[in-house]
């Protein structure tokens, strides 16, 4: 196991898949000569050339659609959206072309495309560069949604997504590209479906994904040390499909659930997970499940306001303590 950064893990996955299969290409804004805004494609332009590492014009709808069209011929494009906020412009092609083509062609055509986007709120990027959009993607039939929470997942998910015949949207996080973690030395393919128990516990289940897994882990540590509450942390790395069985197993054991998301609450990951909890383990619950989420505001620029809008591990701790009447 070597320790590497999240961006290095992504770069390695790109490189290995492109070396293996000449039909794997990558495309996006500034990914080639400039090496990628978050360095996920660093060095690939020099190695594979402009036909396979395509610096695109700033035309998200156009180049996303172009990648999808190429995928109809068996090309496996890794399409980078520099910031997930720009994915709004590409959604027509992602949803109407990539996600639906298999169904509406009666299984004749499929789009083995991968969309990677830097998601999450970073620091003071304002309303149009701080959107959390997982919830928009997770309700689209025919699209897989992955949210890697560490370098090992970032590496293994990208490799698995490239090999998948389905279109896959990978929601990364702007604040996580420099996160370090262990990545297997040999090839590793992360499952496209399921969830992971990141920490075992008995009293309450904390459910997160991507950055909020880390809030949950930190909260679990505080809860155990300071309050004697044993929290189990579930990493919902696949948002589509969600792992009903994994959610049920943990919540039926702990009888309590808190869902942590960086997104705003309405029609979100928390709403969906809690609906599943109600459907799967309502009579096993000792308390009403709750959500920890962002304020429903266009992300403010001001640092203090921004901090107030976005939750963190302290909000998870507070939600659990309230649930326990402490």
């Amino acid at each position: 196991m070597a320790e590497m950064m999240y961006w290095e893990a992504l770069q390695r996955a790109h490189d290995e898949e492109m070396a293996r299969d000449p039909l794997v290409i990558c495309m996006g804004e500034d990914i080639g000569v400039a090496g990628g805004t978050y360095k996920a494609t660093k060095g690939l332009y020099e190695k594979y050339g402009p036909l396979r590492v395509m610096d695109t014009p700033i035309s998200e709808g156009g180049y996303t659609g172009l990648g999808i069209g190429a995928s109809f011929l068996g090309v496996r494009p890794i399409i980078e959206i520099m910031s997930v906020n720009f994915a709004w412009l590409a959604m027509d092609q992602m949803f109407n072309s990539a996600a639906k083509v298999r169904y509406m062609s009666g299984g004749q055509l499929t789009s083995p495309s991968v969309f990677r986007a830097a998601g999450g709120a970073a620091h003071q990027l304002g309303a149009q560069h701080s959107a959390r959009m997982e919830k928009v993607f997770m309700g689209i039939a025919g699209l897989r949604v992955l949210t890697p929470s560490n370098p090992k997942q970032a590496y293994g998910m990208l490799k698995a997504a490239v090999r998948s015949d389905d279109p896959v949207f990978i929601n990364e996080h702007e604040l996580m590209y420099n996160m370090k973690g262990e990545v297997p030395d040999g090839e590793y393919f992360h499952p496209l479906e399921g969830s992971e128990v990141s920490r075992s516990g008995n009293d309450v289940t904390l459910l997160g994904y991507n950055i909020s897994v880390h809030w949950c882990l930190k909260a679990a540590e505080i809860l155990e040390k300071q309050y004697g509450i044993s929290a189990e942390v579930i990493d919902l790395y696949s948002l589509a499909p969600l792992d009903r069985a994994g959610i049920r197993k943990s919540v039926c054991k702990t009888h309590r659930a808190v869902v942590a998301e960086e997104d705003e609450a309405p029609v979100g990951v928390g709403s969906e997970v809690i609906a599943i909890i109600n459907e799967e383990c309502f009579f096993d619950l000792d308390a009403a499940p709750v959500r920890v989420h962002s304020a429903l505001v266009p992300q403010p620029y001001n640092h203090t306001l921004e901090k107030a809008a976005i939750p963190d591990h302290e909000d998870v701790v507070a939600a659990v303590l309230k649930m326990f009447g402490k």
Partner: peptide, 24 residues
Amino acid sequence: MGGYALVGGPFPLAAGIAKGIQLK
């Protein structure tokens, strides 16, 4: 390669198919 019902949607798909031809 199909009929698509969003007006203009096939434009980039057609260019992508051409990209696939170019690569292959």
